[in-house]
Amino acid sequence: MSDFLQRFGHFWIAIVERLGRATLFLFQLLGALFSLVKRPALLIKQLHASGVMTLSIVLVSGLFVGMVLALQAYNTLIDFGQENRVGTLVALTLVRELGPVVTGLLFAGRAGSAMTAEIGLMKATEQLSGLEMMAVDPFKRVFAPRFLAGFIALPMLAAMFSAVGVLGGHLIGVEVLGVDAGAYWSQMQNSVSFVHDVCNGLIKGLVFGFVVCWISIFEGADCIPTSEGVSSATTRTVVYSSLAILGLDFLLTAVMF
């Protein structure tokens, strides 16, 4: 019995300890962000790695999600004779929920895991210690550019996802299923508000970007420096990021809408 209690206690203490380390890490990370003003080239390189490289998968999924939404919405709404509202449904679903959430999940899988693996490998091959030996702060040189780039890139990708999705919905709804093009766009404009829907979607994207990058970089920097440790850290990044995105999405939706 006491063995069990001890293991249970150890389990929780380990979790709290890890959370504490992650928080301290975040403060250090945020403190290092200001040094990026002097080295914008580092940021651009990371924007390429996390933003541009994720673009293709985000655009393709956005197109298909929009097309599927239009198809489902049409099949449901036709029963009520409200098929003109397909545009509204597609746009609101994408802008409010699916845009930021699906982009966040894809980003965690594509860019977040890559960040963790890269940093983890740097740690395993002692490149990070090497940097420190040369009096280069890895927070400023390695972590901060990746963090800021992901934080910026995710909401941008989410906006592109939504825009492409709406166009995909147009493709299926208007071109294939024959919803009136004027009704598609005007019903959408009537019920989607820029501040309330589009901007809140962007805020969601920013929050997800913050959390995903924090988790990815921390997992990379905190991993056990072996090939096995790097692989399990990469797995944890994807799992924790996805859970954090879905949980936070519920919270944000409850607060925003």
Partner: peptide
């Protein structure tokens, strides 16, 4: 697109 076409 989001500001001009999708929202009002």
């Amino acid at each position: 697109v989001l500001s001009m076409k999708v929202s009002n």
